[in-house]
Every structure is written in structure tokens, then in C-alpha cells.
Computed example of a mutant assay.
Amino acid sequence: MKFTIRAALSVMLALAPAGVQAQSADQAGDKTVAVAADDPEMTAAIEQARATLDDFLALSAAPPPGTDRFKLKVKIVDGDATEHFWVIPFKRTATGFAGILANEPELVRNVAFGQYIEFSRDDISDWGYTRNGHQVGSYTVCVMLKKMSAQDADDLRSNYGFDC
């Protein structure tokens, strides 16, 4: 079984200046990075994100100066298809979390770009934010960078502040 993690558009959308309208995957030349469900690096990245989620949530509730673009990545399942999407913005609810789906689905059909979704803590596969122009978190993106072409990975690193 494979699952897909949104790559370039996920990163660009999460980092876009406030007020910028999101583009669909086709408009942005988005690429999808397919990763085996049992990929050890991706599994470790998701575990790291989940292990540090409470610290991230506390920080996002009271962002210090120089931080912005707080986001969560969530797993969406539709039958046998699984895809992971950034949710920007997000908020806590009485039963979990909710926010706006920031990517155009490619595999799953039960959600749509821009849709308000509700999800649980168990659905969260990553988190991230920007601190003084550099990415913090986004552990799954760091794994995806290794699986992209060198040019695509270098572009994301230089344009969006990834240090991994």
C-alpha cells in the first residue's frame, strides 16, 4: 500500500504570504511524492512530529515574535486511498481540530481544496511553522526532499527556508 504526501504546493501554500489566493495543483505545477506506507524514514518523521505535537500546539496558541504560518498536516483516507494535506489555518475544537484543506486532492475524493474539515489528533501526521524565515518542524517534507529531484529540493530549500 502506498500513500501520497503533497510536496511542492503543500510547502508553497503553507508559506505563502497572508492574503495570497491558493492555486490548484494544476496551476502551480504541483508534484506528488508517493511514499510506501512502511517507509522507515517517513514513519520516523511522523513519529517525531506526533511526539512533539503538544509543544507545537502550545507555541501556536501563543506565538512568539518572529513566528508565523502555523500549520498541521493531516491524513485523509478514502477507501484504499490515503493522502496527507496541510490544513491552514487550523484551530482546536471541543472534539479535536478543524481547519481549511490547503491542497488539491489527487487520490482521495471525499474532500476538496478549500474545504473546512474536522479531524482528530490521530489524523495529524506533521506540523510546521516559520521562525525568522526558516522552517521549523515539517518533518515529512524533509523526507520528501530526499525523494525529489535535486533541483526541486534545492528550490524548496532556498525559496522556503528548509534547513534539512
Rank of each mutant, 00 (worst) to 15 (best):
P63T: 09
D30G: 11
D54G: 06
V108H: 08
V77S: 11
A94Q: 14
H84Q: 02
K2C: 08
A16M: 14
A98N: 09
V35P: 06
E83L: 04
P105D: 02
D39V: 15
G161L: 05
G128Y: 03
T52G: 14
A102Y: 03
N110D: 06
G133R: 09
F56H: 04
A153T: 01
L57W: 02
V11P: 02
D26Q: 15
N110G: 03
S120T: 09
A150G: 08
Q135P: 06
N132Q: 14
V77M: 11
F162L: 10
M1Y: 14
I124N: 01
S24P: 00
K147I: 06
I124R: 05
M42N: 02
A37I: 13
S120H: 12
Q151V: 14
L15M: 13
P63C: 11
V87C: 05
A49E: 04
F90H: 06
A51F: 00
A25P: 02
K146W: 08
G137C: 06
L9C: 12
A14G: 13
A8L: 15
A18D: 07
T93G: 04
Y129H: 11
A49R: 02
A81I: 05
I100L: 05
K31G: 10
T67V: 05
N103D: 08
R157L: 00
E83D: 01
T43Q: 15
S138H: 09
R157W: 01
L107K: 07
A44E: 09
K31W: 13
P64A: 13
Q151G: 08
R121Y: 07
A16P: 07
D163Q: 11
Y160G: 01
D26A: 15
D54L: 02
Y116R: 15
P40E: 14
A51Q: 05
T52Q: 14
T95W: 03
T140F: 06
R131V: 06
G99C: 08
V33M: 09
A102F: 02
P65W: 10
V74T: 03
R157M: 01
V74L: 11
K147P: 02
